[in-house]
Amino acid sequence: MSMILFACVVRVRDGLPLSASTDFYHTQDFLECRRRLKTLALRLAQYPGRGSAKGRDFSIHFSSSRDVACMAICSHQCPSAMAFYFLETLWWEFTASYDTTCIGLASRPYAFLEFDSVIQKVKWHFNYVSSTQMENSLEKIQEDLKFQPPVVLTLEDTDVANGVMNGHTRMHLEPAPNFRMEPVTALGVLSLILNIMCAALNLIRGIHLAEHSLQDPGSQFCWLDQTS
């Protein structure tokens, strides 16, 4: 089985796919990995340089510079140095074929679909040429990876990011705080009783005033007549 299964070139700032290799694998796991690669392509601006998202059977490797990134799905047997050497070679081939103006003005997916033939040729070379013929280049890549290790993600991370980008943020639920009421003190009880007594006295006073007004409704007017 080939170690490099799929490759594509994308624009970093928006994840627009510019070109891609033809798929020959249609297993459920591979198609799921393709879906996660598309999600990861939208986040490449957050991860400049090299990076890997590793799963059980497949790994996604990416390498970006300026506004162009190359991505690949590889089997778990593929050494990281070989994957990044492949991506670096692909990046040089693409940027030598298309200038930055053409890349920046691309408005539709796979605007450079004709580059597929180059991707297939480079992919075949890395899958079937003996690694001893690339020994010097692989050693150089390995040294680079020691000094500048790639960002390491998991394929599950891409699903989390996809949910956030679609507005479905992960909710962190915590139990509500348990507030306990303080016991009532003797001073509080006394204050409550006094307030009740004052309210009762005010109520009784109001009733007496109302009764007095009803029993002698003309007294006020008589007093006014006498004074006049």
Rank of each mutant, 00 (worst) to 15 (best):
E114V: 14
L138M: 06
S107D: 08
F126C: 03
W124T: 11
A96R: 13
K123M: 15
T132E: 01
E114I: 14
R108T: 14
W91T: 07
L105A: 13
Y110N: 09
Q133A: 03
T100Y: 03
R108N: 13
T100H: 09
T95D: 10
L105D: 11
P109C: 04
L90Q: 08
W92M: 05
K121N: 10
D99H: 10
I119Y: 10
R108E: 12
E88T: 12
Y128P: 01
F115N: 06
G104L: 14
V129C: 04
I103S: 02
T132Y: 01
F115Y: 09
Q133G: 06
I103L: 04
P109S: 06
S97G: 05
S107A: 11
E114P: 12
V122G: 04
L90D: 02
L87W: 10
A106I: 04
F86I: 07
A106N: 01
D99L: 04
M134E: 02
K123Q: 15
I103C: 04
Y98I: 03
T132H: 03
I103N: 02
N127M: 07
T95R: 15
D99G: 06
V122S: 00
T132V: 02
F115W: 11
F112R: 08
W91P: 09
R108W: 09
S107M: 06
F86V: 06
W91S: 08
H125T: 04
N127G: 10
T132R: 00
Y110V: 05
S117N: 14
E88V: 09
L87S: 13
I103H: 01
P109F: 03
A106W: 00
D116F: 11
T89M: 12
S107V: 01
R108K: 15
E93F: 09
Y98Q: 12
V129Q: 00
C102A: 07
T132L: 01
L90E: 06
E114A: 15
D116C: 15
F86P: 07
A106S: 08
N127I: 10
W91K: 11
W91C: 04
Q120G: 10
S97Q: 07
A111T: 05
V118S: 13
N127C: 14
H125D: 01
V129P: 00
F126H: 08
I103T: 03
G104R: 14
N136F: 04
T101V: 13
Y128D: 02
Q120R: 14
V129W: 00
V122K: 04
F126P: 11
L113P: 10
T95K: 12
S131W: 01
D99M: 10
A96G: 11
N136Y: 07
V118I: 13
K123V: 10
H125G: 02
F94Y: 12
S130Y: 00
W92K: 11
